[in-house]
Design a protein around this nucleic acid. Structure first.
Length: 357
DNA sequence: AAATAAAACAACCGCAGGCTT
DNA sequence: AAAGCCTGCGGTTGTTTTATT
């Protein structure tokens, strides 16, 4: 590969913010002569800039039909949605947002959306609920240090451990439900969101939440299974480890309900196919088969199952075969019997909620 | 009001790959 | 086929603005 001569050019050329005069010169030249070669434009336009800088300035700020200003709620949702499928392919994302440049979208992501997702407990890279690894690390240290040998202090540790694990899983479960509510189908289902965040819910029992999740599945035409969409599974193996250590049975291995098994089986057969295509109203773009790291909850309904299960994440697919959403619930129920000090209301209160429109 | 920190924005840099000679 | 040119992309850095103390 041959290096660009840009570096040599930068000797003596101006850097930094563009002045209105420079903008004027560039606009005038491009409007009069067209773009042509960016390498020659600075000289021809009378600018002491490198061609690269001119191209960037034109592409991101000066060309016609640039849309500046705050992103709308719809644009935000679309960026999140597309990023969940494409990753940091800013130019590809930009093609779906007329008037927005890849640079602007990238900056907006890094300064706003990334933090927003983190605040919602969602990993902005994987678009999955972020596991609280600090807690798990602490639990692991506790286990290794204490050995759980049967003394009174070890028993105390074990009980505390159960409460921590239960609380962690509850938080993740609620976060996951919120994620489904807010990002799974392009636009948030705010009716459900409002229902979910309404004050009485804080007094609900876990079974009520499970019922809610089932209603959502039904309401969404059965195309979404929470055990597929909520990435709690890897944590379940961790849970099993801790349950064993504290003397409880890990979640039972059980077969999937028929609909889930069907989805899993059909998806498994598709693992060699190229990834799904994004359909966004008028245009369609292919996603390279090599795009590997974004199995996402926020995929469109047509592509969701493919994205979720087709992930090359072996841990995810392997554990999918041995655990389920309801199995996790079973474990939580066991823990809940012991976890009288930290109820669901506290979990709900601790959640960070996305703003309603 | 001044100093400092944090956030937001704009631009630069290096690399990869397509195109031309 | 190889070398050079050019463009586009994504990550990073620098600057400016805003908020906080």
């Amino acid at each position: 590969m041959v290096k660009s001569p840009d570096r040599a050019e930068t000797g003596g050329v101006k850097k930094g913010p563009w002045t209105p005069e420079e903008d004027g010169k560039l606009v005038e030249y491009v409007e009069k002569h067209g773009r042509g070669s960016w390498q020659r434009i600075p000289k021809l336009a009378g600018l002491n800039r490198c061609g690269k800088s001119c191209r960037l300035r034109w592409t991101n700020y000066l060309r016609p039909n640039i849309r500046r200003g705050k992103f709308t709620e719809e644009e935000e949702q679309l960026v999140i949605h597309l990023h969940s499928m494409l990753g940091n392919k800013w130019s590809s994302i930009a093609t779906k947002l007329p008037g927005r440049t890849d640079n602007e979208i990238k900056n907006y992501w890094n300064t706003h959306l990334r933090k927003k997702l983190i605040g919602m407990g969602i990993d902005p890279v994987t678009h999955r609920p972020a596991a609280n690894l600090n807690i798990l690390t602490g639990l692991s240290n506790l286990l290794s240090a204490g050995g759980l040998g049967g003394t009174a202090s070890h028993l105390d540790n074990a009980l505390k451990l159960q409460a921590d694990v239960a609380h962690l899983l509850k938080l993740q479960l609620v976060q996951s439900l919120i994620q489904v509510l807010t990002s799974s189908y392009g636009t948030p289902n705010m009716d459900l969101m409002n229902l979910f965040r309404s004050p009485p819910l804080g007094n609900y029992q876990p079974s009520d939440l499970l019922q809610l999740s089932r209603q959502m599945e039904g309401g969404l035409g059965g195309s979404l299974s929470l055990q597929n969409s909520i990435p709690m599974i890897p944590n379940l193996s961790i849970l099993s480890h801790y349950l064993n250590n504290v003397g409880l049975q890990p979640p039972p291995e059980r077969s999937f309900p028929s609909d889930v098994a069907a989805v899993t089986a059909s998806d498994a057969s598709r693992t060699e196919e190229p990834r799904a295509e994004i359909s966004n109203n008028s245009s369609t773009s292919s996603i390279p088969a090599s795009s590997s790291t974004h199995p996402l909850v926020s995929a469109s309904s047509e592509t969701k199952n493919i994205d979720l299960v087709q992930s090359s994440d072996n841990l995810y697919t392997n554990t999918l075969a041995s655990a389920s959403f309801e199995a996790c619930w079973d474990s939580l129920m066991k823990l809940d019997n012991l976890d009288s000090d930290f109820g669901w209301k506290e979990v709900i209160d601790q959640m960070s909620w996305p703003d309603a429109p």
